[in-house]
Simulated assay, not measured.
Amino acid sequence: MRCSGLVRLAVYESTGKDLYSPAPNADGSMGKDSSTNGMLRSKELSNPNTQIWTGAPRNVDPGSLGAQPGDLLFYGKSASPTAPNTHHVAIYVGNGVIIEAPQSGEVISMNLWTPHDDLVGIRRVS
């Protein structure tokens, strides 16, 4: 399971909200896009009320930026978690712990958050 699939399932199971929004094809029909970017097109995540923190890529503990258990952590090269170059999403558990699916085919794991220089946003879905 990819990171976006893990987050989609966890949010759906806990809130009943589906974060997946497929991207339209060039002809206007809806395409199949299971990438992190496709998931991020959701109106739920583009709602400014869900934004906890967005900024230039940082190397700081998400808790120091206001993250709470269940918040989504976005990684990328831009200052917006809805930008096309967001490449990873994880779930913050609290106390420096995250749940993530590093990439397709790898085991979903609970890990201590380790410093990354590409944390670009934190979102809360309720």
Results as ranks from 00 to 15, higher is better:
11 V>F: 09
50 T>C: 10
18 D>E: 15
46 S>M: 14
8 R>S: 10
52 I>W: 03
68 Q>H: 01
18 D>R: 15
55 G>D: 05
29 S>C: 04
78 S>N: 04
33 D>V: 12
26 A>Q: 15
35 S>K: 04
39 M>E: 00
23 A>P: 00
44 E>Y: 15
64 S>D: 13
30 M>N: 10
27 D>S: 04
9 L>E: 11
74 F>E: 00
34 S>I: 08
68 Q>L: 07
72 L>H: 10
53 W>H: 06
32 K>M: 14
55 G>M: 07
26 A>C: 12
66 G>V: 10
26 A>F: 13
61 D>W: 06
34 S>P: 03
63 G>H: 12
39 M>I: 00
36 T>W: 01
29 S>E: 03
39 M>N: 01
66 G>P: 10
72 L>C: 11
29 S>L: 04
20 Y>W: 13
31 G>W: 09
30 M>H: 08
71 D>K: 13
75 Y>T: 03
7 V>D: 00
62 P>Q: 06
77 K>E: 01
52 I>P: 02
38 G>F: 01
77 K>F: 05
16 G>H: 07
8 R>Q: 12
64 S>I: 10
51 Q>Y: 08
58 R>Q: 11
61 D>T: 02
49 N>G: 14
57 P>G: 03
77 K>N: 05
74 F>K: 05
22 P>Q: 02
28 G>D: 00
36 T>K: 00
18 D>P: 12
51 Q>E: 13
21 S>H: 11
8 R>F: 01
66 G>E: 07
28 G>K: 04
78 S>K: 05
63 G>C: 11
21 S>I: 06
47 N>R: 04
78 S>L: 02
45 L>A: 09
39 M>L: 12
66 G>H: 09
10 A>W: 08
43 K>G: 07
29 S>D: 04
22 P>K: 00
25 N>M: 08
48 P>I: 09
29 S>W: 08
7 V>P: 01
42 S>I: 12
42 S>Q: 13
71 D>P: 11
71 D>R: 12
69 P>W: 03
71 D>G: 10
17 K>C: 04
15 T>Q: 02
53 W>Y: 13
70 G>C: 04
21 S>M: 11
55 G>A: 05
44 E>Q: 14
78 S>G: 03
17 K>Q: 12
70 G>E: 02
66 G>I: 11
60 V>C: 10
67 A>W: 11
41 R>H: 14
12 Y>H: 13
47 N>E: 03
26 A>T: 14
33 D>I: 08
28 G>V: 08
50 T>F: 03
67 A>R: 08
37 N>S: 10
48 P>C: 06
30 M>G: 09
47 N>P: 01
37 N>R: 11
67 A>P: 07
23 A>E: 12
74 F>M: 06
37 N>L: 05
29 S>F: 06
62 P>I: 10
75 Y>K: 09
40 L>A: 09
16 G>V: 09
42 S>C: 14
48 P>T: 09
31 G>T: 10
42 S>T: 13
53 W>T: 03
28 G>I: 09
28 G>S: 02
53 W>P: 01
